[in-house]
């Protein structure tokens, strides 16, 4: 996964380009989408709050990995949405999810390696 700054800048650049074509997509709304692009990076909370330690404290298996999946992005985008006025919810959620999915796609280079590895495995057998 690339660094957070890269994810934010990619989302900001694409959002700005989109804003030239979409009337309602002003700078204010582009910023919301850029915030969504940070969601998959929340997985790094593991650096300050070790998942193994949380697991030991709670007595259940525990991992922050879902933050970097589509399911995690949908839920965290929902939490972000709740912080806004009711009138904006649909738009905020759509933009935050779009930003988050952009960052997941940027992280695909890693997934490609795993998929390629799996194909090797099949070929070996």
């Amino acid at each position: 996964m690339a660094d957070l700054l890269t994810h934010l800048l990619v989302a900001f650049a694409l959002g700005t380009i989109a804003s030239w074509r979409v009337d309602w997509l002003t700078h204010r709304w582009v910023v919301v989408g850029v915030g969504g692009a940070a969601i998959p990076d929340l997985v790094k909370v593991d650096i300050v709050l070790d998942a193994d330690a949380v697991s030991a404290a709670l007595g259940v298996p525990f991992s922050f990995e879902p933050l970097s999946t589509l399911g995690g992005v949908l839920i965290v985008a929902g939490l972000i949405t709740l912080a806004f006025e009711r009138d904006h919810w649909r738009r905020v959620h759509g933009l935050a999810v779009t930003g988050g999915v952009l960052s997941l796609v940027a992280a695909l280079s890693f997934a490609t390696v795993v998929v390629a590895a799996d194909r090797h495995l099949v070929a070996d057998e």
């Binding site: 259940v60 525990f62 991992s63 879902p66 929902g78 939490l79």
Partner: peptide, 24 residues
Amino acid sequence: KRLLLAALLLSALGGLFVHEDATS
């Protein structure tokens, strides 16, 4: 109501955190 919705979403997220590690 917003806090209740937030609590529901947080429980769902917590469920994913546990499910992921249990099945990884």
